[in-house]
């Protein structure tokens, strides 16, 4: 059974190296004392110190975090409702339109989503005077819209695998629908809700293209700031930011995996992509 072809092993090793070498190199060079990014100037934390002194950067990071938390929360709530309705309600009015609108953002090029939302906000401002200016609010709305689609995929996968007899039993025993929903359905869906929230959170925190379109003067998110800096090449303080983000992600993912068991949130991300 286990034949090992040297060629296969080489390709696989190359593939994993491709996935990890860039990340590892950035982490190592974030501790580089030299300003020249490619020369090793000894271990140093100077880039981390310079991050703390960078007010623009801290502001952008805080703004991004705020947007990510709010949009992930709304996206999870709205997405869960859509997933439940598509899964449970047989004769849903406009089901086709709803399921079309909720899958389309997954495949729509970001640049078009961004452009079209900007046009909407401009038209709305023209028509009803809201939003008067673009910024954190419009970015949050945009992020809720595309994150919802991912939440629906994750929650639907969970619903498909879920045993509904417990809810039926509770209902038969006279439980009120709302009580049954919060006492039984929500706890059973919790792993998917956590996955969906984390997925939305990371997508929001990472979004450059859509935010760039729907943002206005004064609202610069972290990816927008990073993009402006790295367009000019490698800058050591970005290495430090990357390392901090990697550390946070690893902690969150590991914790979430432990909490929610084997089929944790880590497994959910390719599920949305692979549609399996």
């Amino acid at each position: 059974m286990k034949r090992r072809s040297p060629m296969l092993m080489t390709i696989v090793a190359f593939g994993y190296a491709l996935l990890y070498v860039p990340i590892v190199s950035v982490v190592i060079y974030s501790f580089n004392g030299s300003r020249l990014v490619t020369l090793w100037g000894g271990f140093s934390l100077r880039w981390y110190a310079s991050l703390l002194a960078d007010k623009d950067l801290l502001g952008a990071a805080l703004l991004s975090l705020r947007i990510a938390i709010v949009s992930a929360t709304f996206a999870t709530a709205l997405g869960a409702i859509v997933a439940l309705a598509l899964h449970r309600v047989n004769r849903l009015r406009g089901r086709l339109l709803l399921s079309g609108m909720i899958t389309a953002p997954l495949v729509m090029p970001e640049i078009i989503t961004g452009l079209s939302l900007l046009f909407l906000f401009i038209s709305m401002a023209d028509l009803i005077g809201w939003p008067a200016s673009r910024g954190a609010t419009t970015i949050t709305i945009a992020h809720i819209t595309f994150s919802m689609a991912y939440v629906v995929v994750v929650v639907r996968a969970r619903l498909a695998a879920m045993d509904e007899s417990l809810e039926e039993a509770a209902m038969d025993l006279g439980g009120r629908p709302v009580a049954v929903f919060f006492d039984i359905t929500v706890p059973m869906l919790l792993p998917a809700l956590v996955s969906g929230w984390l997925l939305s959170f990371t997508l929001s925190l990472d979004d450059l293209v859509i935010s760039s379109f729907v943002s206005g003067p004064g609202a610069t998110t972290l990816p927008m700031l990073i993009f402006a800096k790295v367009r000019l090449g490698v800058t050591p303080d970005i290495n430090a930011i990357t390392t901090i983000i990697i550390a946070l992600v690893v902690i969150i993912v590991v914790a979430a995996t432990i909490i929610s068991g084997r089929r944790g949130p880590v497994a959910a991300r390719p599920a949305d992509a692979g549609g399996q």
């Binding site: 990890y20 990340i23 490619t38 990472d206 090449g233 970005i238 290495n239 990357t242 983000i245 992600v249």
Partner: peptide, 19 residues
Amino acid sequence: AVILPFWISFLLRVYAWIG
């Protein structure tokens, strides 16, 4: 191990190649 990098910012992972 295939999935894990996906949780790290896409922008920053692309940036890493510049170096």
